[in-house]
Each structure stands twice: as C-alpha cells, then as structure tokens.
Simulated assay, not measured.
Amino acid sequence: MIRVVLADDEPVVRFGVRAVLATAGDIEVVAEAENGSAVIDLVARHRPDVAVLDIRMPVLDGLDAARVIRECHPSTHTLVLTTFADDSYISRALGEGASGFVLKTGDPLEILAGVRAVASGGAYLSPLVARRVVDQLSLARPRPVARQRIAGLTVREREVLGLVGAGLSNAEIAARIHVVEGTVKVYVSTILRALGVKNRVQAAIIAHESGIIPE
C-alpha cells in the first residue's frame, strides 16, 4: 500500500484528490494538511511514501515544504499539484527536489500515475505540464542545446534517460531493457552526473527537450 500525506489549503481540492486516490486500491491517504508547515510535521509523524503538495499554501508554500522534506525525510517523495498559472514556480520547484508535477485540472488518472511513479522512485510529469515546461525552457535553451547536453551519453544511457523522462521507475526500466535494477541505478547516477542535474525530474525535462521520450 502506498501511503500518502496530502496538503492543500482548499478543502474542496483535498476532497477531490482524496476521492481520486481512494479509487486506486493501492493508495491510502494517511493524513491531510492545510499548509506546508503542518505537512512537514505530518511527514515526520507518519513517514509516508509520497507527499502530495499544492504549491500555493499559507505559512509555508509547497515548494519550501518539498525542500524541507527532501532534506529531512528523503524517503518521502514529493508530487506537486500545479496549475498553468504556476509556471513561474517550475524552475524553483525543480531545484527543491520535487519528483513530479500534476495538474489540478488534468485527468484524474494522472494523479494516480504520478503518485505511483514517484513512490517507486521515478519521476512524473503530466503530459500537458511537460509540454508547457519544455516550451518555457526552450525559449532559453532550444532543443539543439538540449541535444548537445546528451551528446556525451552512450546509446544505452540515452535510452535510460528517455525512460526516466517517460516516468518509469528503476525497476520498470530494468524490466524494459532486460538488466538488473542495480545496473539501472548506476546508469541513472552516471546520467545525472554527466548532465549536471540534481534529480530525476531535471533529467526528465532534458529528455523531453531532447525529443528522446519513447512512444
């Protein structure tokens, strides 16, 4: 069972997200919070697999909460709830260690996919979020530049990067390319180091920019 702490200052949103997660069968919301400070306390108490965080919350916003959770409770992965109006927060969120982004107004199945992906150590970007982020970043870093960044990777490393960008966990990547999970961990560490990025989400963005996401 994937254990989730949910944080959003709007009760209606929390109700909706909780209802979606309740349909999964393998996901349990163990606690809810109205602000980022409270969710940090709940993460410390419950040690959930995933913290689902709204960006805009009182006291402490979701991005500051994601940073504290990453630093103090690294076994809990964070999934950020966002809207297109939150574009200005994306670059900051990447630096705070969030493992994924889903739209509040998107397909409810994306929330389920996002929670499952980040719980298993993967990264997840809702397709519309990924497209919007890539469009934003391409203004400053067009696709040819992204392709230059991956030019030093081996064919296998580019394949793994593409699967990371598709939101697959290490175990899923291992099954896809027929190697053991430990080998995938080595590949991912090498890729992050080669690209000069901090986490899988940043690597996933480069994968999307480079156009190497598998069909």
Score class of each variant (00 low, 15 high):
residue 62 G to N: 08
residue 62 G to A: 09
residue 63 L to T: 00
residue 63 L to W: 04
residue 64 D to F: 08
residue 64 D to T: 10
residue 64 D to S: 15
residue 65 A to K: 01
residue 65 A to V: 02
residue 65 A to H: 02
residue 66 A to H: 05
residue 66 A to V: 02
residue 68 V to I: 14
residue 69 I to L: 11
residue 70 R to V: 08
residue 70 R to F: 08
residue 72 C to D: 14
residue 72 C to N: 13
residue 72 C to P: 00
residue 73 H to Y: 15
residue 73 H to C: 12
residue 74 P to N: 12
residue 74 P to E: 11
residue 74 P to K: 10
residue 74 P to W: 11
residue 75 S to H: 13
residue 75 S to D: 15
residue 75 S to R: 14
residue 75 S to I: 07
residue 75 S to E: 15
residue 75 S to Q: 15
residue 78 T to Y: 05
residue 79 L to P: 00
residue 79 L to G: 02
residue 80 V to I: 15
residue 81 L to H: 05
residue 82 T to N: 08
residue 82 T to S: 12
residue 82 T to Q: 08
residue 83 T to D: 11
residue 83 T to R: 07
residue 83 T to F: 00
residue 84 F to D: 07
residue 85 A to N: 13
residue 86 D to L: 07
residue 86 D to K: 01
residue 87 D to A: 15
residue 87 D to I: 01
residue 87 D to F: 01
residue 87 D to C: 07
residue 87 D to G: 12
residue 88 S to I: 09
residue 88 S to A: 15
residue 88 S to D: 14
residue 88 S to M: 10
residue 89 Y to M: 11
residue 89 Y to P: 04
residue 90 I to R: 03
residue 91 S to N: 12
residue 91 S to M: 14
residue 92 R to F: 06
residue 94 L to N: 08
residue 94 L to Q: 08
residue 95 G to T: 06
residue 95 G to M: 07
residue 97 G to M: 03
residue 97 G to I: 03
residue 97 G to P: 06
residue 98 A to I: 05
residue 98 A to D: 05
residue 99 S to Y: 03
residue 99 S to D: 11
residue 100 G to V: 01
residue 100 G to D: 01
residue 100 G to I: 03
residue 101 F to K: 01
residue 101 F to L: 07
residue 102 V to T: 07
residue 102 V to Q: 01
residue 103 L to A: 11
residue 104 K to F: 02
residue 104 K to L: 10
residue 105 T to G: 09
residue 106 G to V: 01
residue 106 G to A: 10
residue 106 G to I: 02
residue 107 D to N: 14
residue 107 D to E: 09
residue 108 P to M: 09
residue 108 P to T: 06
residue 109 L to A: 15
residue 109 L to D: 14
residue 110 E to K: 02
residue 112 L to E: 06
residue 112 L to K: 06
residue 112 L to R: 04
residue 112 L to G: 03
residue 113 A to I: 02
residue 113 A to W: 05
residue 115 V to N: 00
residue 115 V to G: 00
residue 117 A to T: 04
residue 117 A to E: 05
residue 119 A to E: 00
residue 120 S to Q: 13
residue 121 G to E: 01
residue 121 G to L: 07
residue 121 G to W: 04
residue 122 G to Y: 00
residue 122 G to Q: 00
residue 122 G to C: 06
residue 123 A to C: 08
residue 123 A to V: 05
residue 124 Y to E: 03
residue 125 L to C: 07
residue 126 S to A: 13
residue 127 P to T: 07
residue 129 V to A: 06
residue 130 A to S: 10
residue 130 A to L: 03
residue 130 A to R: 02
residue 133 V to P: 01
residue 133 V to I: 14
residue 133 V to M: 13
residue 134 V to N: 03
residue 134 V to W: 04
residue 134 V to H: 05
residue 134 V to G: 00
residue 135 D to M: 13
residue 135 D to N: 10
residue 135 D to Y: 12
residue 136 Q to N: 12
residue 136 Q to T: 08
residue 136 Q to R: 11
residue 137 L to M: 14
residue 137 L to P: 04
residue 137 L to Y: 08
residue 138 S to I: 03
residue 139 L to S: 12
residue 139 L to F: 09
residue 140 A to W: 06
residue 140 A to T: 09
residue 140 A to E: 05
residue 141 R to F: 15
residue 141 R to M: 15
residue 142 P to S: 11
residue 143 R to K: 12
residue 143 R to M: 13
residue 144 P to I: 11
